[in-house]
């Protein structure tokens, strides 16, 4: 296997990690804001706060990993995407900054305010929407080369149905992933009121998720036929993903094995996400940039992979510790230990 494939696989894995944990985070923020409006705050507030508090910083790092790694493995991607994405990513950046810092401000500093909770919830949906634009652009057709520099065609991007389908998918899947996770989390915490409500949310957002995903594949047929064909070549991966979607929904429906339902959701999304990635190969940006013409030198690639392995050897035990102390520590989740310890 060549280094370029190793590189992109590692980065894709990080992006997947980001998408899952950020979705849980963004969705939780939204549900927390919504519960304020729907007067169900007393049901959800506790469970969401307990989950979010110790992990908020960790989420952001996955994203930083992805883009720093991208520059490292594929410096040309920095040139193409850096130039094109100035406006969309700056907007995401500002939203991320406001949301991230305000979370800390309110949790550790001042008391809740309704306006803030509302903004926090809405920002959580705008961020995935604005970041998803990157995937749309990567499909090609929205970039023109002028004097050797890539230029983004804003108008075309804005009026493309593909753009909006991907935006919709990003938002509904955030809500679906988050609701399913929090249902399982509430189950571990034996918080049955929260579990009942969150299960309803999870089921409600499952349909829109699968519908918008199918819609995108159909639209790619018009927009980027060669990509569509490659998706069809590995149709079985997407079909398998669909099977796991059915399993998740069925488990939620039967009110059983909530944790298993969440793991099945992870498998569903990872199959779809890696299926999409594989079908996108070898392009980073249709039709200008492939992973091969954008790849760094072998010395740097080797160094990055070694650093990655060493770093991971350090991080896995740390993440395990974090998870053991907070996420999967039953007495912490139930709120018996470490209350407001800071």
């Amino acid at each position: 296997m060549d280094l370029a494939i190793v590189g992109i696989s590692v980065l894709w894995l990080f992006l997947f990690g980001y998408i899952i944990i950020a979705s849980i985070d963004f969705g939780a923020g939204f549900f927390s804001a919504y519960s304020e409006l729907a007067n169900t705050k007393h049901i959800l507030h506790h469970i969401i706060q307990r989950y979010l508090s110790p992990v908020w910083e960790v989420t952001n790092v996955f994203l930083v990993f992805f883009f720093v790694g991208m520059v490292g493995f594929f410096p040309s991607a920095a040139f193409y995407y850096g130039t094109i994405l100035l406006v969309p990513v700056s907007i995401s950046n500002v939203l991320l900054a406001i949301r991230g810092s305000y979370y800390a401000f309110q949790t550790y500093g001042v008391k809740d305010s309704k306006i803030y909770t509302f903004l926090y919830g809405v920002a959580g949906l705008l961020i995935p929407a604005s970041l998803s634009i990157v995937l749309t652009i990567s499909e090609g057709g929205f970039v023109e080369m002028v004097d050797g520099n890539p230029v983004l065609l804003y108008e075309k991007l804005f009026f493309s149905p593909l753009t909006w389908s991907i935006v919709i998918l990003s938002v509904v899947s955030v809500l679906y992933i988050s609701a399913t996770f929090l249902t399982a989390y509430a189950d571990i915490a034996k918080d049955f009121d929260a579990r009942r409500l969150l299960r309803k949310y999870a089921l409600a957002w499952s349909g829109p998720t699968i519908l918008s995903a199918t819609l995108i594949i159909w639209q790619l047929r018009q927009h980027n036929f060669s990509h569509f064909e490659k998706i069809m070549d590995i149709w079985w991966i997407f079909a398998l993903s669909g099977v796991f979607f059915v399993i998740t929904v069925a488990l939620l429906w039967m009110k059983k094995y909530y944790s298993l339902a969440f793991w099945s959701l992870i498998i569903q999304f990872s199959l779809a996400f890696f299926g999409y990635g594989i079908s996108h190969y070898p392009y980073l940006l249709y039709p200008y940039l492939t992973i091969y013409d954008g790849f760094t030198n072998d010395a740097m690639a080797t160094a990055l992979i070694i650093a990655f392995i060493a770093g991971f050897a350090l991080l896995i035990p740390s993440i395990w510790l974090l998870a053991r102390l907070f996420l999967f520590n039953k007495s912490y989740v139930r709120g018996e230990k470490g209350k407001g310890g800071y």
């Binding site: 110790p54 790092v61 720093v68 520059v71 490292g72 650093a307 991080l315 510790l321 310890g341």
Partner: peptide, 22 residues
């Protein structure tokens, strides 16, 4: 890009333990 990449690890490490410490 190597030190840029490693910086992310260093920060990650810090963030995790800060969360636990807190």
């Amino acid at each position: 890009s190597l030190p840029l990449f490693m910086e992310t690890f260093a920060f990650f490490f810090e963030a995790i333990f800060l969360g636990i410490y807190l």
